[in-house]
Design a protein around this nucleic acid. Structure first.
Lengths: 244, 244
DNA sequence: CTCGATCTTGACGATTTCCTAACGGGTCAG
DNA sequence: CTGACCCGTTAGGAAATCGTCAAGATCGAG
């Protein structure tokens, strides 16, 4: 119970980091700090924080991309800090996967309350393996890299988006609209022709035999499914009850 | 697809309710409105919304108490609206169990984005949708997959729709019109010949002896019923999954 | 500005799925 | 027995979906 909760604090302003850090530590949280986007993604993968507090105004990578990068493989709560009041920015951050958006200047008490609210929700640990290995290629969700044999396969952002969503839902059927919404954004849902183009692209790059897909399967009329051949029968030791 | 998500909208200002309601409906949400705290708690219990948008400035019960009332039995996402900028208020609401706090006036886009964020989180818990196992086949509703022995059975969207509705109502009789409406859409109800065709198709794929159905039973003149032979006398737990 | 990479869009056969209509076999009442 | 009714079965053509290709459109880098 007394398990300390880990917070990843991403901000390039030393003042904020110090102030927040002191407060959080005093409250019994364990703090990890990162000063830019790459660092944040790396440390998140290393330390598996229970929550991330992320300043959008970072040098280097765009803050939104950091959110997407995290969301690729983890559902850790993300609270975004920003000086920008612009609504567009808020919506973009939230739709990218942020859980909350706080504009600076903010009250420390409020931020802490929002942090508590976020942590309260995340009771389930959900130990995932962010790296997936198949006989034909390897996908590292945290680092966003695909290797085939020993050489790296380069995917465009959209291609990666598709791979990511399908792999995260491994074995599960993902409907076209769900896939579109998750990769292109919530306002999409009908443009199934995009999918056809990009699925084909992905297969061309990853499938050993693109015209006969073994991993990225089409379920006609329903959606797509990622699956490692030979594993489906082994599913569900979880709570599945056999009645042989 | 695309089950409509239900939103409970609690506010005593008709203007806000109308504006929000129109927007939300246009986006495909199903709206329930309540004007005061008691009403809100009652309607939440009745309709089991997927999210609650709650104005703190209500007549009658204090908004904070509404939050507590809800949190007593549900973890539905609660987004609080308030004119009060006071930090004390925010902290109180968040610590009482609210998921988010938006101060009026707010941008519609932002609120909608926050709503999406809240709904997205709630979607995760993948509520233990049990796998249904029979001696002849296995149906995994979450993953949308049917296996017979060790090989996969491919179902078309309509076939799957029928199986899903019947299995969800396991043991219960589903009338023809109900089945038609649930699978084809609300404007259907008379086209019982569709059913004959697709039920036959399903039986051909799943029943060990299609001409003598053991699972997908016809209730002449009334409708259809899914049932696992040997189980009807005893009361099964929720979805036919048994604790050995 | 040009170039290259990426994403959009439209169009085309090939395939799959759906609708439709017709037939036949049960059951039941008259 | 006969006809009405309901259900199962079958099959062919209509309609939707999918994979594929290739030509714009867009954007950032140089």
């Amino acid at each position: 119970m007394a398990e300390q909760q880990r917070i990843l604090l991403v901000d390039d302003e030393p003042g904020i980091v110090r102030a927040l850090g002191i407060n959080l530590k005093a409250l019994g949280y364990q703090i990890e700090a990162a000063a830019d986007g790459e660092d944040a993604l790396r440390k998140a993968a290393d330390h598996r924080p229970d929550a991330v507090i992320l300043d959008l105004g970072l040098p280097g990578i765009d803050g939104i991309d950091v959110i997407r990068g995290l969301r690729g493989w983890t559902s850790v709560p993300i609270i975004v800090l920003s000086v920008r009041e612009a609504e567009r920015e808020k919506i973009a951050a939230l739709d990218a996967g942020a859980d909350d958006y706080v504009t600076k200047p903010f009250g420390m008490g409020e931020l802490l309350a929002r942090l508590r609210a976020a942590l309260r929700r995340e009771l389930e640990p959900e130990a995932e393996v962010p790296v997936l290995v198949t006989p034909d290629f390897t996908i590292d969700l945290a680092v966003k890299r695909v290797t085939k044999g020993d050489q790296e396969i380069k995917l465009t952002p959209t291609e990666w988006g598709i791979v990511e969503v399908l792999v995260r839902n491994q074995g599960k059927l993902v409907s076209q609209t769900q896939l579109l919404k998750e990769v292109w954004g919530p306002q999409y849902g009908e443009e199934t022709n995009y999918l056809r183009v990009f699925i084909a692209q992905v297969r061309r790059k990853l499938e050993p035999q693109p015209s006969n897909p073994r991993y990225f399967l089409t379920e006609p009329g329903m959606g797509y499914r990622f699956e490692i051949p030979g594993s489906p029968p082994t599913r569900r030791s979880h709570l599945g009850v056999e009645m042989k």
